[in-house]
Computed example of a mutant assay.
Amino acid sequence: MNQNARTRFILQLEKIIANHCRTQNLNNGNRYRYPVHYIKNGVSYKTSGNGVANAGDDDIRTMKYTFASHTMDIGAALEEILDFMENNCAFGPGIHYYDDEIDYFDDVIDHGLH
């Protein structure tokens, strides 16, 4: 499976979003990780609990949240957000907050930096 730095960045962002779910009508909100579904090599997968989805570069756009009969394409949305940031924010084209050479997010994962 191929995971470049951009893919690993998207997977970490997805986990952050998924960890901000809670059950309404409970005193403390019962926080949990919302499960993400994705397809890898033609097989459907679901990541829940504390896990980070194990999607590859070509699988990101298949990542989705399912809410009864509704679906949120979280992988495609995160890719569009990163494209927007690269083209319109201080990062600018060609300047990335993820980099296969530097790979800041490996440091975040390895050292717990946030």
Rank of each mutant, 00 (worst) to 15 (best):
T47I: 11
I17A: 00
H70F: 09
K15E: 15
G56D: 04
D58C: 09
I60F: 01
M72K: 02
D73P: 00
G51P: 00
V108L: 08
R8M: 10
R31H: 09
D99A: 06
N2L: 09
R61C: 08
G49H: 06
T7I: 11
P93L: 13
Q24W: 14
I95T: 05
D73Y: 10
H111D: 06
D58R: 01
I81T: 01
A5K: 01
D59K: 01
I81V: 09
D59T: 13
Y38R: 07
S44G: 07
T66H: 11
D103M: 12
D100G: 04
N27A: 09
R8Q: 12
K15N: 15
T66C: 09
Y38L: 06
Y98Q: 01
D57V: 11
N27G: 10
H96Q: 03
G42R: 04
K15S: 14
A18M: 14
I95F: 11
T66L: 03
A18K: 00
H20A: 12
E86M: 04
T7R: 03
K64L: 00
L113V: 05
N54L: 13
Q12H: 12
N54T: 12
N41H: 06
F9Y: 08
R33Q: 15
N88A: 12
P93N: 08
S44H: 12
D73T: 02
T66D: 05
N27R: 13
N4L: 08
D100W: 08
K64T: 07
P35D: 14
I39R: 05
T62P: 02
G51K: 02
R6L: 11
G94I: 13
T71G: 02
Y104S: 01
V36E: 00
Y65H: 05
E101L: 14
G29T: 13
V43M: 07
T66F: 06
I109L: 11
I102N: 01
Y65S: 03
S69C: 06
I109N: 03
E14P: 00
N4F: 06
D59A: 11
G29R: 10
I17M: 00
I39H: 00
H111I: 09
T47W: 01
H111N: 14
Y98M: 03
A55P: 03
F91M: 13
L13P: 00
T71Q: 04
A18V: 14
G75Y: 00
Y34V: 10
K40D: 13
I102D: 01
L113S: 04
D110Q: 07
S48W: 03
D99T: 11
L113T: 08
Y65D: 03
G94K: 02
T47M: 12
G49W: 07
A90R: 04
E80H: 03
D107T: 08
F91C: 15
Y65T: 02
A5M: 03
Q24A: 10
N41S: 14
Y45E: 04
Y45Q: 05
L11C: 12
R61K: 10
M1H: 10
H70Q: 13
L13V: 10
L13M: 14
M1A: 15
T47G: 04
H96G: 02
Q12N: 13
D110C: 12
V52G: 05
E79Q: 06
L78I: 15
D106L: 13
I109K: 03
T62W: 04
D83K: 07
P93R: 06
N54A: 12
N54S: 11
N28Y: 10
